[in-house]
């Protein structure tokens, strides 16, 4: 589904990603862990298509297409979804209207019929229940005045409504208390199936207790220095990131 090959990315002349290789297949959940400043969020943003990143080398192939040549909206319509680390507040645009517009753009792209207001409301209600989104948040402007937890929950709600094929979760666990963490994880787990894939970007192992990954990759200073199964996350939690960085130094 997704192949990242030897990817080098700079921001304002500073090299952030230094040769990333990663392959994600349908049905898989990959966790990317790493200390602050290791390039995790850069990777997530590059996949989603944010401006301001120079791809100096390498490529990303998504479903056989060159992802880096696609506009962010094309990526979204083809099924790429980024749950933002810092969801953006959009005053004056109601959550419901925003989501209906987005869903219908994606449906149009897939050659499906657009949903009318009544159909959309019915569909949305089901998804709201799943992620525990109250009515009050639906009619408010997107993310405006939402608490940190509500914003993150709103991201997962959008994930559920839009049903992408590849979901990238950027630090979705940050700022969540344990109850919110469970709700968000449930939202992600009920999304998972054999036809889609999830990349979980996180600093802490905590989230991975609820969203169990198939693979764990450790990103340090722009490189994946270690990959393994879900056990690697626990090991990291116990030994800290120093353990892999030192380890890398030894093997280098």
């Amino acid at each position: 589904m997704l192949k990242i090959k030897d990817l080098f990315v700079s921001v304002e002349e500073k090299e952030i990603l230094k040769g990333i290789n990663l392959e994600v297949n349908t049905g898989e959940v990959h966790a990317i862990m790493g200390p602050n400043g290791s390039g995790k969020s850069t990777l997530a943003n590059v996949i989603a298509g944010r401006d301001g990143y120079d791809i100096t080398k390498g490529e990303i192939i998504y479903e056989g297409h060159n992802l880096l040549e696609m506009d962010p909206e094309e990526r979204a319509r083809e099924g790429v979804f980024l749950a933002f680390q810092y969801p953006v507040e959009i005053p004056g645009v109601s959550n419901a209207v925003f989501l209906k517009t987005a869903l219908n753009e994606i449906r149009k792209h897939r050659g499906e019929e657009e949903l009318d207001a009544v159909q959309f409301l019915k569909y949305m209600k089901e998804k709201m229940k799943l992620v525990g989104i109250p009515d009050s948040l639906i009619n408010r402007p997107v993310n405006q005045g939402f608490s940190g937890g509500e914003k993150k929950r709103n991201e997962i709600f959008q994930l559920q409504v839009l049903q992408p094929r590849l979901a990238v979760l950027d630090e979705t666990d940050s700022g969540l208390d344990i109850d919110a963490l469970k709700i968000v994880s449930n939202g992600v787990n009920s999304f998972r199936d054999k036809n889609n894939a999830v990349i979980v970007v996180t600093h802490y192992q905590r989230l991975l207790n609820y969203i169990i990954p198939d693979f764990v990759h450790v990103l340090v200073d722009g490189r994946i220095v270690k990959s393994g199964g879900k056990g690697l996350a626990l090991e990291l939690e116990e030994k800290g990131y120093d353990w892999v960085t030192n380890n890398e130094a030894v093997t280098a």
Binding site: P72, E73, V88, G92
Partner: peptide
């Protein structure tokens, strides 16, 4: 905000219009 709307599948021009109207 523009990028956020686009990552949800809303085209650039449409996203601009949505934000200006709001």
């Amino acid at each position: 905000a523009l990028f956020y709307l686009r990552t949800r599948g809303i085209g650039k021009e449409e996203a601009r219009t949505v934000l200006i109207r709001a």
